[in-house]
């Protein structure tokens, strides 16, 4: 198998694509935002429940998308749950910089943990948006924006 393929479509991503975590509608949320990727026709809705201490108590999403965007959304929710808003924002920055090639995770310290698995998308410009859609939607939700588009 092609090495780039191994790099991108790893077990973990495939597993999260097939069995996305926190994949559900949330009834009582504090924040909600819709993310659109018009190029793919992909759409996701992200729900957050943030408490008075600015901790993300619960997070979930629904939507349709490619394996990369679905796995990225799923893994984002597991990484963010229980974190503070400030921590979530810091992760967004690291993830974004990694996907766009600004952060070389081999060289620089980062908090990404398992999320580093998405580093391969930086070599696939057409797929960066798939990996970052969930994160941009999170960023929008935290800013109180209802809807974003990746174009």
């Amino acid at each position: 198998m092609d090495t780039r393929m191994k790099h991108l479509y790893q077990e973990l991503i495939i597993d999260h694509n097939k069995n996305p975590r926190n994949f559900r509608v949330m009834e009582e949320f504090s924040h909600e935002s819709v993310g659109n990727n018009p190029l793919c026709g992909d759409k996701m809705i992200l729900y957050l429940k943030i408490n008075d201490e600015n901790i993300i108590e619960d997070i979930s999403f629904i939507g349709d998308g490619c394996a990369i965007s679905k796995a990225s959304s799923s893994m984002m929710t597991t990484a963010i749950k229980g974190k503070s808003i400030a921590q979530a924002r810091a992760l967004f920055k690291d993830f974004h910089d990694m996907s766009t090639g600004k952060l070389d995770i081999a060289e620089h310290p980062h908090q990404l943990g398992k999320l580093a698995i998405f580093a391969g998308v930086r070599d696939l410009p057409a797929r960066v948006k798939c990996a970052t859609l969930a994160w941009h939607t999170l960023d929008a939700a935290l800013k109180g924006e209802q809807e974003i588009t990746t174009e």
Binding site: D2, C40, G41, D42, G65, C66, A67, A126, C130
Partner: peptide, 29 residues
Amino acid sequence: GIHPHDIGTILDFHGVAVRSGHHCAQPVM
């Protein structure tokens, strides 16, 4: 159960160039 963009990327890994997307014909989609 498989998104066209994943198909397009994996086919490209095999040297096969196809187009994935709405082909500038969204009303068809």
